[in-house]
Computed example of a mutant assay.
Amino acid sequence: MNPTLRDLEVFRAVMECGGVTQAARQLGMSQPAASKMLRQAEERLGFQLFLRDGKRLVPTAEAHALLPEWLGAAAALDGVSRLADALRKGRSGRLAVAAVPVLATALLPDAVQAFRARHPGVLVSLRACTALEAAHLVADHRADLAVILGHSADLRVETERLGTSTIGCVLPRRHALARHRRLGLMDLADQPVISLSAQQPVGAMLRQAMAQEPRMGQVVVEVSQSSIACALVRAGAGVAVLDGFGLREANAQGLLVRPLLPAMPLEVCLLRPRHHAQSIPAASFTAFLKEAAQRALAGGRGVNEHGER
């Protein structure tokens, strides 16, 4: 039989102290118990570890040969123990998060900052992508979690609603529609409309609304990100229709934002692997993410009648 870890601890202590009494004191155990464990270690190994010379124990050649290997094993086990403790307390590891671009810039920074303050030793990896790709990353366990607008149809992921955003319009400050506190779909009838792609929830919802109102204006520019839409509005290319986070970004850039009626609510959702336990960092980040989403979506989850957040 192989010696136990405790047997080897007694062996190392006796090697360092030169006697069982001092070794037992160092290990916080009784001298008879230490002597018994040392005998058991010798029985399991099949050879003597020490020869008695008066009151002192002299290591055998086999003991000297065993010591370096034991010290290496002890160091490795100590490293494993420290790593396990760090992982248990969320002080080490890696967290991979995927998000659609607007949420990667408007929602995740606050959550990441709070998470990093609590878990400075955890490496955070952020990836901006489409909602479809985000679901695939989570389902394939290449991302611990993801945040998207709208729901995912991927049955391999679990969806949790974080809140509801609203859809509104972005205008240049001197635009003719700036005098309106709210805009309806018909107000856009003569306007060139800048929209997110039809593969994104906002773009899909806008096109569905436009299909029901033939007199409404047409989408003249299709973009992949809210930041691009804002740049086009600044350049005078048209009026953009964005989700609440895109409106927040536009407002910060000095553009006008207006609620769009009828209201088109859009859910913000968290994706996790289905039937898969979260890591400690992922569970902690989820809590910070929910707090950040609650703050960002509070108070109407969009813009007021004056176009202010």
Results as ranks from 00 to 15, higher is better:
D53T: 12
G238R: 01
D154G: 02
M29A: 11
P3N: 07
L123M: 15
A131D: 06
P109E: 08
G307Q: 04
A111G: 11
V138D: 04
E9I: 04
W70E: 15
A63L: 02
L171N: 07
T130C: 05
G54T: 01
L27F: 00
S279H: 05
S227Q: 09
A41Y: 03
G300K: 04
S195R: 05
D85L: 11
R301H: 12
L289Y: 07
L155Q: 10
E16R: 13
H175D: 07
P273I: 02
T4R: 09
L87K: 11
R258T: 02
L66W: 08
E305C: 13
V221F: 01
G28W: 02
R91D: 13
G79Y: 04
F115V: 07
V221T: 03
V97L: 12
M210Q: 13
A176I: 09
Q294N: 12
R6M: 11
D154P: 08
P265S: 11
V138Y: 02
T159L: 08
V112M: 02
Q199N: 01
G307A: 10
Q218I: 00
V124I: 11
N304P: 03
G46V: 08
P68F: 08
G246M: 09
L51K: 02
M37S: 11
W70L: 15
R52N: 08
A99D: 10
V223C: 13
L188P: 04
E158Q: 11
V233D: 01
C230S: 14
Q218R: 10
A235C: 06
V97A: 07
R116P: 06
R6C: 09
L183D: 01
A176R: 13
R182G: 10
E9N: 10
H141D: 14
Q22C: 02
F50M: 05
G300S: 04
M1S: 11
S195H: 00
A13K: 14
E42C: 14
A252P: 06
S35H: 07
V303G: 01
N251M: 05
T159N: 05
A76Q: 15
L261D: 14
L242N: 01
R116S: 15
L185W: 09
A34P: 03
L185I: 10
R6W: 08
R295M: 08
A252V: 09
T286D: 08
S226E: 07
E249I: 09
P265Q: 11
G163Y: 03
L103G: 08
Q40N: 09
L171K: 06
R118F: 05
R234I: 06
P201A: 05
A114S: 10
L66I: 07
T21D: 15
H151R: 14
P259E: 07
G184A: 06
L256N: 03
Q278Y: 02
P3S: 10
S284G: 15
G93W: 11
R207T: 02
V58I: 15
A117T: 15
P68Q: 06
Q191G: 00
A111S: 12
I167D: 00
G184W: 06
H306Y: 14
V233I: 06
E222V: 09
R181D: 12
L297W: 01
